[in-house]
Design a protein around this nucleic acid. Sequence first.
DNA 1: TGGGTGACTAAGT
DNA 2: CACTTAGCCACCC
Length: 103
Amino acid sequence: MASRPEDFVSRVLEVVESIPEGKVMSYGDVAAAIGSRAARGVGQVMAYYGGDVPWWRVVRASGHPAADHEARALEYFRAESTPLRWSAGGVFRVDLANARWTP
DNA sequence: TGGGTGACTAAGT
DNA sequence: CACTTAGCCACCC
């Protein structure tokens, strides 16, 4: 294959691993950090290679964690003391205003 | 090489 | 404030 997955995949993993505890980044921010706008591409890479990186530190622009993985991320957020914003019904989302990390 | 899918985003209702 | 629609880019077959 002429393409080198490491160019995009490795960079995504590199950025995600570089996120400190208690901080989070949106998919779009990660994509922008590597010079791309493929927020969905980041999600694809995370879904496949995310098993070796703190995927829970990567959330959507709305502050919600990866779809269908909120409960899993919540345990990490509580352990990392990540700023969370709770809504009625037990629904929570990351307070990007305070947890958004920019390199 | 081309088509379909998706751990997304922004804007509109 | 929450849900819906359309658009985008990268990955997989």
